[in-house]
Write a protein that binds this DNA or RNA. Structure first.
Lengths: 233, 233
DNA sequence: GAGTGGTCTAGACCACAAT
DNA sequence: TTGTGGTCTAGACCACTCC
């Protein structure tokens, strides 16, 4: 029988409360002496648990101010955050807007990969400074996110809505180059067959499929950059 | 004046010896009690330094066996390893081969980004089962890798040669979709203007530019997949 | 000033694996 | 068996930063 170290049990307890949403971003977690009393251990043991979580970006620790749950899922790799188009556009100083082109509720088909049961199918155009920037096709599982059936995706784009309502625990990205089909070309204002960058994204929450999204960008106007320092985690 | 914690100084010292090549992969580093004596500190301080390095994958610790430098740069992200085309092809059970199309030595120009001084310019075609798979254009800095001037890139592809001779410490990838130009279309056997996935890669070693590489793949035949579990580092 | 985290000590016992 | 790392303690002092 393997005994789990106490510091890892403490870290796991906290991580679980963050993952479950019980402790939301910005929530101030108990100070070290409180946790020390709760677990009946030395302060260093608690400190190690919290330091590990901080090193992984789940919490932020500041002297005097205490320890708070780090705000949104902090992803170290630049590629993880790609699909937040709105942040991307606003980050480069452009005005973001979007248009909901189509919306339907239907049963998941065989090709809908991680999703089953009923899904919401959406088609959204993202615009930067009023010009087409990306065409998004998305399916959202109503099993994983029942509120999606009545959510107002004209006000908030589906990606942002999902991030706020049903954060994912696993994701898969697929990046490819495709020629613009008729619908894409029309939506993005491109010639038929123009080279586009396509990002497909599937996410899961605790093993259950949440969403599938395909975002297509004009090849000439968009690229992905990732920087690595292998010795820095 | 900021004082660097001792545990980080210890970790930094070790990391530097690994990065410089003084301690190669597999090298057994001093045991905790030796380092304790060397730095005149408590064993826990050394332990923390080594634990941090182990958590980052630079070293591997095993009871009784001691602590050894981890074998090659361990990259957790799937995207870091993309440009090792040979491994990619062989990993899917195809036969890898390559053809050196062009080779020249010249001075670096303005557009050659991280590179300065004299460079080797190479153009290589990668083949899977004898069929074109990717077209690679590469520059190698002779300042960073002087042996590149006489290396035999017909036997070993430039990417593999570099990895063995001048490992990088930092890298940047850029991923985009482009239409095939005449040279690319001819090399890969595509129609002019076909959608291609282009990977650009720049690497540095301790701040000095090592190489720039651009690899172009037929869009229909290649895509990138990355999987993430945000709670797992 | 006072509350909080950051680091460090000098021990101790245990777990694991190579011999 | 024994060398090595893994964890833990019960303190201590310091550094930061909010009040």
């Amino acid at each position: 029988m393997e005994r789990e170290p106490l510091h890892r049990r403490i870290a796991g307890d906290i991580e679980r409360r963050i993952a479950s949403g019980e402790w939301r971003p910005g929530f101030r977690i108990p100070i070290e002496t409180e946790l020390t009393a709760e677990y009946g251990c030395a302060r260093m043991t608690v400190s190690r648990a919290l330091s590990d979580l901080a090193a992984r970006g789940l919490i932020v620790r500041r002297r005097r101010a205490g320890t708070v749950v780090a705000h949104p899922p902090v992803h170290s790799s630049a590629l993880v955050s790609i699909p937040d188009i709105q942040a991307e556009i606003e980050g480069r100083g452009s005005a973001y807007s979007h248009r909901l082109l189509a919306r339907a509720v239907r049963s998941a088909r065989d090709g809908d990969s991680p999703l089953g049961g009923r899904v919401v199918a959406l088609e959204t155009l993202h615009l930067a400074d009023g010009l087409p920037f990306a065409l998004e096709r998305r399916l959202i599982s109503l099993d994983a996110a029942p509120e999606a059936e009545t959510a107002d995706f004209e006000t908030q784009a589906p990606g942002g809505w999902l991030l706020a309502h049903t954060p994912w625990t696993e994701a898969e990205h697929r990046i490819s180059a495709v020629a613009a089909d008729r619908e894409t070309a029309a939506g993005l204002g491109l010639a038929l067959g123009a080279a586009c960058l396509k990002l497909e994204r599937r996410t899961w929450r605790d093993g259950q499929g949440v969403t599938w999204a395909s975002q297509t960008f004009p090849g000439a106007a968009y690229d992905l950059v990732a920087r690595f320092s292998p010795t820095k985690g």
